[in-house]
Design a protein around this nucleic acid. Structure first.
Lengths: 234, 234
DNA sequence: GAAATAGTGTCTTTGAGACAATATATG
DNA sequence: CATATATTGTCTCAAAGACACTATTTC
């Protein structure tokens, strides 16, 4: 019975797309690639591509990121964001895109292979101003919203920091993603009170002006309990 | 340029599967169907099926639920849960399943069409005891976890209550999903303090023993601010 | 009246937020 | 010393949780 003819089913194309986010210069930055083929040739889009027949979805997403950008993914947070499959989202064929959210510590320089389309970091305000290919504007918004929400109750902000960082750097991640200015004193105390959020390296930063700050690395905790409250903007 | 031949891509089967949850008899219940064809014939699985070529994903999920169970979906909460696509998850072919979470107010009696496989409500403990077809055990766990998490910061618990309900009924949803016993007094105050969580109907319940409780219907708010804290079990 | 459930009052503790004060660097 | 940033102290307010108490019904 097992080797009988499979039932009829409509064939779909399945792709993975990536929302790769970093924080730099007080902006949230997203990695975009310029399309060199139709549809949407010349427009910017999220990196992605077709999934192989024997390829796992997350593996596919990871390898797209590596292939298109040459980045080492050691310190990259990866999670599934959502799946987009409106029948008209790709004019060529029926396509379902499984989207992954990746958070990287630093803006690595995208390695542009000779035959690959150019990739570039763009702050999200500019990314929204250009309109992206397919339904990628909507996908990008979803990715940024997910990040903002998760900063409240997870330690993910450390994934957007260099391997070692000061509390001020960690705070700047929150300030940038949330578009607020958290109180440095209260933020410091809150982070210190949450066991496993960060752990001290014993080092200090080489400092410009002001008292030098201690350096920390990410702790073992993944969830913040109690969460870090996002200020309500009224 | 737009009408040129589409590039080669591996054909996938795309399905939608449903985690349909209700609360009854102090248990979380899930709607399961018994498979009558291979693979996994005779085992229980989540309801679902193939997506049509021109069908939107969520539309497909809704119509599967209607077709398989004959339920009116007016008061049903629907949201995308996650997508599962391990290459070996379906022995017949490469299949990607987009899973939706549905929350229903009451256990409607599943309408079993003459040619349709039988469907039945099962409490999640029993569902986990039987092992479900495909990777549906894992999917079910994900759905229940999503529900438990969302009760904290959304008003979704009202979607699991009848059209009008008492505060005690609403509390029993929290108690059941979280596996705790919240303090009736504090819960009452908390719900009342959150504008838009519930609104009074002016009616009272016909009561068994004890002081009759006021009846409420769901309010307009979707988010709880501040959230309802889930007790930490230490 | 006894029992049961609904709903209110009150006290304690925890944590968020405002902001003053102290610490340690540079120029 | 002036300035800048880091870090700590202190006070106030909001909300969670424990639990005593009151309200309104059935038996």
């Amino acid at each position: 019975m097992l080797d009988r003819t499979p039932p009829q089913f409509p064939p779909f194309a399945v792709t993975v797309d990536l929302v790769v986010l970093a924080v730099a210069s007080s902006t949230v930055q997203v990695l975009l690639v310029r399309r060199d083929t139709e549809p949407f040739a010349g427009q910017w889009s999220l990196p992605g591509g077709f999934v192989g027949v024997e390829q796992d979805l997350e593996d596919a997403a990871r390898s797209k990121l590596e292939a298109k950008t040459g980045v080492a993914l050691a310190r990259t947070h990866f999670e599934q964001l959502a799946t987009f499959g409106r029948p008209d989202r790709d004019p060529r064929m029926r396509t379902v895109s499984v989207v992954y959210l990746a958070l990287v510590a630093e803006r690595f320089e995208p390695v542009v292979a000779a035959d690959a389309p150019p990739a570039a970091w763009t702050d999200i305000a500019s990314a929204r101003a250009r309109s992206l290919a397919f339904d990628h504007d909507e996908i990008l918004s979803g990715g940024v919203a997910r990040l903002a929400a998760k900063l409240e109750y997870t330690t993910l902000a450390t994934a957007l920091c260099p391997p070692t960082f000061t509390i001020a750097v960690l705070r700047s991640v929150y300030d940038t993603v949330w578009g607020v200015e958290l109180d440095p004193a209260n933020f410091h105390r809150k982070v210190m009170a949450t066991t496993g959020f960060v752990e001290p390296t014993g080092e200090q930063i080489v400092a410009g002006a002001g008292r030098p700050a201690k350096l920390y690395r990410p702790g073992s905790a993944e969830l913040l309990n109690p969460p870090l409250q996002r200020p309500t903007d009224e």
